[in-house]
């Protein structure tokens, strides 16, 4: 059974048709590369998977359940996480709170008053997660907005991995990273595959895509125009699909 299954997904913004009936499947533990020109609809497609956008037509199934009408919180609960292209971090909130945003663990204050956010636990677990990822930030107490672009990107990655996801969507996760950090993200994807976590990697850097992904899907003007096995294709072919020069 497929972990994720999209069938006939359509989406338009006003008069602009962005997705024209997309079919796509992803297996558990699979690493899929999604490529396409600027404006091809990659981010829009991924946001319809996480529920940030509702689809006009079509179905999204995850883990055997139709999630088309679930909200982003419910889909996160089921194990869909996404690192957004714009990162979607709250700049004035601190690192730890960002990692736990929407998932704050609570306890009773003085054993009495309910809904007390367990800040100590948030700080400790956030620090553990960052250590595990080998990320260095000065402190989990500083506002995310004061970190560098690359550091912010790793905070977004930490947030996606903290809650035992089944599928992690990464929208340009390496765009702001130095060479060494890019390598560690690719290594991380490998590690996730070993743990059975599926990944969809969106990137304009085809080298990275070929290194990390066994399967590559090309989106062009809101249609899937190619679904290729890494071992049976090459960069030239993928590029020709991206620019629409194929066939």
């Amino acid at each position: 059974m497929n972990l994720l299954e999209l069938a006939g997904v359509k989406k338009s913004f006003g008069a602009v048709q962005v997705l024209n009936g997309v079919d796509l499947t992803v297996d558990a533990g699979e690493v899929l590369g999604l490529v396409g020109d600027n404006g091809a609809g990659k981010s829009t497609l991924m946001k319809s998977i996480t529920g940030v956008y509702s689809t006009d037509k079509g179905h999204v199934r995850f883990d055997g359940i139709d999630v088309t009408h679930l909200d982003p919180g419910e889909r996160r609960e089921m194990g869909i996480e996404m690192i957004y292209q714009d990162l979607a971090l709250a700049a004035q909130q601190d690192v730890a709170n960002n990692i736990f945003l929407g998932r704050e663990p609570t306890k009773r204050m003085l054993g009495l008053i309910p809904s007390f956010v367990d800040k100590r636990r948030i700080d400790r677990q956030a620090q553990e997660m960052l250590d595990q990822l080998g990320v260095h930030v000065p402190s989990v107490h500083i506002p995310v907005g004061m970190l560098s672009g690359g550091q912010q990107q790793t905070i977004a990655i930490a947030r996606a991995l903290t809650f035992k996801p089944k599928l992690v969507i990464m929208d340009e996760p390496t765009a702001a990273l130095a060479v060494r950090e890019v390598e560690s993200v690719l290594k991380l994807i490998d590690q996730m595959r070993a743990e059975g976590i599926a990944t969809i990697l969106i990137s304009h850097r085809l080298n990275d895509v070929f290194e990390a992904c066994e399967r590559i899907v090309v989106l062009r003007r809101g249609n899937v125009i190619a679904d290729l096995k890494r071992d049976k294709t090459d960069m030239a072919e993928v590029v020709s699909y991206i620019v629409g020069a194929h066939g």
Partner: peptide
């Protein structure tokens, strides 16, 4: 004060004011 500073509702309020996309993406209604 308790609600704004120490409950999930308060955290979500500040996050929403900070970056609405962030709030939505993390599943806050």
């Amino acid at each position: 004060h308790y609600i704004l500073a120490h409950t999930p509702f308060g955290h979500h309020t500040l996050a929403l004011g900070d970056n609405e996309n962030s709030a939505r993406a993390t599943g806050i209604n």
